[in-house]
């Protein structure tokens, strides 16, 4: 923060001082070797600036054409670009075709040829340890990662254009027949049985017993699982209890009082969490919210004694993940543990 005052609040660039020319908040992607002193690319795809000045193009990430149509940029290039059209990612071979390989130093060329072995033309900018390809590209005003178009049809994803799919656990089971989740499939090494779970939930009429949509999220005081931030006494004092936000109408129907203890019941394996009720119109009727920064209680039982000595945070509470449920992203297989259904009862 020592040079904060030197940065312009509109351009975000430092006018003078040791950070002169840099964009505020480095490290942005800075292209090339440290010797190039690239100022950073804080706004990607800014074609109004020269690539040496923090300008850029849209990366050619998905090939150069598909079904006969070019995927490269049309009528768009960054300021001062010697190529006034779209172009693919740069390799040693592309440099040769343009005749730009003569700008490489002997050392850079030797490194590229050593990496490439029998096929040096295939060495791309991302694996060129000499940084020569990036350097030569910057000299010619182009981006080593190419200049392409953004795509609206993501043809390699299960839904190339997003479509509505009901959640696995939904309060609208009547919509599941029309908007089912994706079929069960083996993804990476694992089975993703989302459809089986969704069908089972509908067949069992689960939404009748768990009529509230439970969403989880962050508090400003805590971060992530919260072990570190709940160990900070200034922050811990501001949020001393795990809680569930519940709408006044839902609270009244259940005899739940603001600040009173409740059980939040999850739809799988009889899971439950004992937390305080925060009765508020922050959440709509039929929706509840729980923060995900707490741990250290499990289904009503204090686990403080199980922490290694001196490692227990100041504030403990139920983990929302106790009541969240099955679900995996079909592309990354990442667990979707943020939203589910629940029931709430006064404890």
């Amino acid at each position: 923060m020592a040079n904060q005052g030197a940065f312009d609040i509109v351009t975000l660039r430092a006018a003078d001082g040791p950070a002169k020319g840099d964009y505020y908040g480095l490290p942005w992607p800075c292209w090339g070797t440290p010797e190039i002193k690239h100022p950073g690319t804080h706004t990607l795809y800014n074609t109004n600036l020269h690539v040496k000045d923090g300008g850029g193009t849209f990366r050619a990430r998905f090939g150069v054409d598909r079904e006969g149509e070019s995927l490269l940029a049309y009528n768009s290039w960054s300021k001062g670009s010697e190529i006034t059209s779209g172009y693919p990612e740069f390799t040693y071979g592309v440099l040769k075709q343009l005749g730009w390989d003569k700008d490489l130093t002997g050392k850079e060329r030797a490194t590229i040829e050593k990496i490439g072995g029998a096929a040096p033309d295939g060495v791309g900018w991302a694996v060129d340890l000499s940084g020569g390809i990036i350097r030569v590209c910057l000299e010619h005003g182009v981006m080593a990662y190419g200049n392409a178009k953004a795509r609206a049809i993501a043809w390699n994803l299960p839904d190339p254009v997003p479509v509505h799919r009901e959640p696995i656990y939904t309060i609208r089971p009547d919509l599941v027949a029309k908007y089912p989740t994706l079929p069960d499939a083996r993804q990476f090494r694992m089975l993703n049985a989302g459809l089986t779970h969704q069908k089972s939930a509908v067949d069992r009429g689960l939404a009748k017993d768990f009529p509230i949509v439970l969403t989880s999220g962050r508090l400003v005081e805590y971060e992530g699982g919260g072990e570190e931030t709940r160990s900070n006494r200034w922050l811990a004092e501001l949020q001393q209890d795990m809680f569930v936000e519940i709408n006044p109408a839902d609270a009244a129907a259940r005899g739940v009082q603001d600040g009173g203890w409740v059980w939040v019941l999850g739809p799988e394996d009889g899971s439950k969490a004992r937390v305080k009720a925060l009765v508020t119109e922050r959440v709509g009727k039929g929706v509840a919210f729980m923060p995900f920064h707490f741990a250290g209680y499990f289904q009503g039982v204090d686990q403080r004694g199980n922490y290694p000595k001196g490692a227990d945070p100041i504030v403990l509470g139920e983990s929302v993940n106790t009541v969240t449920t099955y679900g995996y992203d079909p592309v990354t297989n990442m667990h979707e543990g943020k939203v589910t259904l629940c029931q709430i009862r006064a404890a």
Binding site: V220, E221, W234, E237, L238
Partner: peptide, 17 residues
């Protein structure tokens, strides 16, 4: 309502719980 003022104050002056 980010409570940065509260936290900064408590930290600066070591204000007790």
């Amino acid at each position: 309502e980010c409570n940065a003022c509260v936290t900064a104050c408590k930290n600066e002056h070591e204000v007790p719980w």
